[in-house]
Amino acid sequence: MPEPSRPARAHTRRTVLKSTAVTAAGTAFLPAVARAEPTALSRGTIAPGESAEITLSVNGRDRVVAVEPRVTLLDALRERLGLTGTKKGCDRGECGACTVLVDGERVKSCLTLAVMRQGSDITTVEGLADGDRLHPVQEAFIRHDAFQCGACTSGQVMSAVACIREGHAGTEAEIREWMSGNLCRCACYQNIVAAVADAAREVRR
C-alpha cells in the first residue's frame, strides 16, 4: 500500500539529536556541524531524500558519512562505510546477525538509526582483533567450530564478547539463555556455547 512520506518529514532536529544530546558533548558531532554550511540537520528540517553529514566513531576511527535520518546504523556501516562484516539477516531485530557493540553494549544495528549513534564508540567485527592477534572469542569460535556458513557469525562473536563482559557466561545454561538472541540456522549452538565458555575462561585469566 502506498505510504505517505510523513515519517521522513517528521524528523526534526530535536528528535534526531535527542539520543546524542547527553553523550555527544561536542566531541564528534558539533564540530562537523559548526564548520560546515548550514545543513539540513542544523536547519531543523530534513526533506525526504536529503542527507545529513554525521561523524561515527567506528573501530576507533572517526568516519564522516552522509545519511538520511532514516538510515539504520546497519545500513550506514554496510552500504556507506563498506564494513560488510556486519550482516543483515532480518532487518527487524529478530536474528541478531547485525549485532555490534555501542559503547561496549551489544546492540542490534538494524534497530537503531545512524544519526542516533553520533558520539558513541561503535565496534564491529572488523575492529575486534588487535592487529593480527584475534580476540579470544574469535579464537575460540575457530577452535570449537562454532560456525558453518558464517552469516550469523559476526553477530554471534560480538554478542559473545558482550555476554562475557556482562558476566552472563558463568554456566552453560546461562550462556544458552544469554546467547539466544542470536539465531544460527546452521545450528552450531552446542559449539557456540563451548566457544563462549572457553573464551570466558580465557578473558577472566
Binding site: T84, T86, V125, F141, I142, F147
Partner: peptide
Amino acid sequence: GRAKVTGA
C-alpha cells in the same frame, strides 16, 4: 575460519 570470524 579466520575470514568468517573477522568479517573478511
